[in-house]
Design a protein around this nucleic acid. Structure first.
Lengths: 335, 335
DNA sequence: TACATTTGTTTAATCGTTTAAACAAAAAGC
DNA sequence: GCTTTTTGTTTAAACGATTAAACAAATGTA
């Protein structure tokens, strides 16, 4: 790499101190500095193509204008879409984003947080993993500005942006009942993550209120890192007679994406024989021959709010902001 | 934010100089330092939960252990999948990734490159935009380590990792001919980006060699930032009789994703009435009722190679490495 | 003329590390 | 017992910026 031009270089060339150069280029003490010299400094800065070393600047100012983003997996469209929105909103505020994927494990999450803090990010946006509550609490104790996104811990009074998972899933359940489904299957995750448990609870509440029978075997839960095969196996179980289901609710985009690919290959017709409904939109839900009824999360608003709340928190301490945004049910042809 | 523990704090607590602490914690001069003191230093570092300030470290060592990643759009699954692979490979080498989306414009690309360099990234992985050749050339002149990915400029002797677009598209064309298609349509981009032009050329070469007639109107090209409507309009044109096509090749995942959603709504049957083939896999190609025949890019190898080549380049200058990986045709039910 | 104020600029410390060089004390060599 | 070497540690400069404080010269005031 070539040697970069520093303040010192400009100072030498113009024949002044580095302090003066710094003042001029940062537009400080404007009323004190002679126009003549200021112009000269600006000109040579331009001529030498000077760009301040942000590392040095950060060391001194203790601000990096950088935010760390920890998602479960940047390859998951839910998170990459969110990442793009966060990137754009950050850029509007002259911030840069460093990201990492936790892979849903607390160890990777902790490692990422450490790396990001070592790099002195000004704040964090986190989709926390299972068993990471202590990590988050530590951030709190250390007064590090952060915002949780998508997932939350009720015991923690922390900034949070997400949707009302319970309510949205409840609406899904209601909808399936209203359209006459009698035996409804659920495919979700076996997890301690509350936002996912909420989806299950909300959905089951609707069924319960609707007075339909709901056996345990109608509720399948796979691991967060489940393979295609495991999800397919679950669907298979649900569709196996006697007592096969006439509707399936997928609790996430990952599940519906895998599920739809599988159902596509089965000799079952949607929605006549089987109704479908998914939490989250995706190319898969759109493209299925009977485009899916799904819960739409307001990603744009989630990402933008997360950034804004974080920047607020960076600027000054304040009470935590918790945003439970409404998620809407979008009706498709699958139910 | 809380005050972080510095070398100085440890030094004071133990009663030694910061230099000694630095040596110990970096495992330098091991044969010189007394075991006793070393242990004490390590213990207090642990006790105080010391974490080095990477910003300060970087300023001194002139290395940030950071690589900048510029893609067209992190929300595009092609790039987000690549990003995840790059992230993992970087992490294996203790590097962190900072990313940005260029949105296919040279201005944003330049701005991103500037921001990343201001932050002193050790190197860059870039999916360059149209008209960014000068930017790239500048990087070269400044001896900044970088690797182009996905796209390239033949006039530039730069590190590059991508696939043989011409050959892969050619194979696609051959395949459609072999399966008996006579009037074949192409949907691509109106662009100066060579990797996309290559796809067109390769594809047309196959048709030409096959001796099938190919009228200009069978070749539709949309803008890189084309809307759904524009893509749909192109398809509509291709399918309009007389002289309607019996096969369509999509030159990218974005085009096939939009295209499939549209074709899904049309009263046309794939593959009997219409064969389809796409460059790149996606959830859409998998999920289409007749899973698509597509060109599979070896993303894993691309991402990993890009990182490895970059790290090589960071370590020491060397001749450029240009990797044109083979992309394979995966046969589906759509052709 | 003497003193106070304003103007324009420099000095020097600092952020948290790294690292070459200096140094004092102990050990070895002769 | 004197010199040389080794051992263990410290000093101090540096990375590239920021910024309070100092300062000299010019200008204003009485």
């Amino acid at each position: 790499m070539e040697k970069r031009v520093s303040l010192k270089d400009i100072a030498q060339k113009v024949g002044v101190s580095t302090a003066l150069v710094s003042y001029v280029l940062n537009n400080q003490k404007e009323n004190r500095i002679s126009k003549e010299i200021a112009r000269k400094i600006r000109d040579t800065a331009q001529a030498l193509n000077y760009r301040p070393n942000q590392i040095a600047k950060s060391l001194k100012t203790r601000k990096t204008l950088t935010i760390g983003l920890v998602v479960a997996d940047i390859a998951n469209p839910f998170f990459s879409t969110l990442a793009r929105i966060i990137e754009d909103e950050a850029e509007k505020n002259r911030y840069t984003v460093i990201f990492g994927s936790s892979d849903e494990t607390a160890e990777r999450s902790q490692r990422l947080i450490d790396v990001l803090l070592d790099r002195q990010v000004d704040g964090l946006i986190l989709a926390p993993t299972e068993n990471s509550e202590d990590q988050i609490r530590q951030l709190q104790e250390r007064n590090i500005p952060f915002v949780l996104i998508d997932r939350y811990f009720p015991a923690l009074e922390a900034n949070y942006v997400g949707v009302n998972n319970h309510e949205a899933a409840y609406q899904c359940g209601l909808h399936l009942l209203e359209t006459g489904r009698k035996r409804i299957g659920f495919i979700g995750f076996q997890t301690t993550l509350l936002h996912l448990q909420d989806r299950k609870k909300g959905f089951l509440k609707a069924l319960q209120e609707g007075g339909v029978a709901f056996e345990k075997k109608q509720c399948r839960e796979v691991a967060l890192d489940a393979t295609h095969e495991e999800v397919e196996e679950s669907i298979q179980q649900l569709l196996k007679g006697p007592g096969q289901v006439d509707a399936i609710f997928f609790a996430s985009n990952k599940l519906s994406t895998i599920g739809l690919k599988y159902i596509n290959r089965l000799p079952v017709t949607v929605p006549t024989e089987l109704a479908l409904c998914s939490f989250d939109q995706s190319d898969a839900t759109d493209l299925f021959y009977a485009p899916l009824t799904y819960v739409r999360q307001p990603l744009e608003e989630m990402g933008q709010s997360a950034v804004r709340i974080l920047l607020q928190a960076i600027e000054k301490q304040g009470p935590p902001v918790q945003l439970h945004l409404p998620a809407s049910l979008v009706l498709g042809l699958s139910s």
